[in-house]
């Protein structure tokens, strides 16, 4: 990440820090709550992300590029979407965890459409989350959501992926890409 890309996060963080600090001094409750929420989320991230990035590193050095290309790449058939959705079902967090994993798949040769299907499915079709959802809203609600969203997810992912791949769109690099 170069200097210019750091301006937005740095400004945001400094302003937020000052705001929370000010809220603490002035006794502004909503501001204090935001600070507490931030700290809570931060700790949660810190407990998940190191594992995720270690696994991504291992994936990068051990999994052969040909394997990914064969099953998830441009030559692979419709079955590749099934793999993407199944893989997404095991995702441990929301979009923020799926993004680095999806990107790692892309770097190893998965095509854009498959990565998109993985990202979509990781947000709405995670197995642990679905169980949770069904407990609170009933299994019929969850069943309808899966039945309608999955076909749409695959269609949209395939369409968008095809369009972007054909125009030669490349996902940005995020460092440490060796293959």
């Amino acid at each position: 990440m170069n200097r210019k890309e750091l301006v937005f996060p740095a400004t945001l963080l400094v302003l937020f820090g000052l705001f929370v600090l000010g809220s603490g001094l002035a006794g502004f409750a909503p501001g204090q709550q935001m600070g507490r929420d931030f700290a809570g989320f931060f700790m949660k991230m810190l407990s998940v992300l190191p594992c995720v990035f270690i696994l991504i590193g291992l994936f990068e050095v051990w999994v052969k590029r040909e394997t990914i290309e064969k099953h998830l790449g441009c030559g692979a058939g419709p079955l590749s979407y099934l793999w993407a959705v199944l893989l997404a079902g095991t995702n441990v967090g929301g979009l923020h965890v799926a993004l680095p994993v999806g990107h790692a798949l892309y770097v190893k040769g998965a095509r854009t459409g498959v990565v998109l299907a993985y990202l979509f499915a990781a947000t709405i079709c995670r197995i642990p989350m679905a169980l949770f959802e069904a407990t609170f809203l009933g299994w019929r609600f969850t069943a309808v959501r899966f039945a309608v969203s999955l076909p749409l997810v695959v269609c949209f992912a395939a369409l968008i992926g095809h369009h972007f791949d054909r125009r030669g769109y490349r996902l940005p690099e995020t460092g440490g890409d060796e293959s």
């Binding site: 990440m1 750091l6 996060p9 270690i54 991504i56 590193g57 291992l58 051990w62 995020t174």
Partner: peptide
């Protein structure tokens, strides 16, 4: 090498 790759990618996206 795997750990280094993981660490590098993590640092790169940490600001985001």
């Amino acid at each position: 090498r795997a750990l280094r790759i993981g660490g590098k990618r993590f640092l790169k996206v940490a600001p985001a």
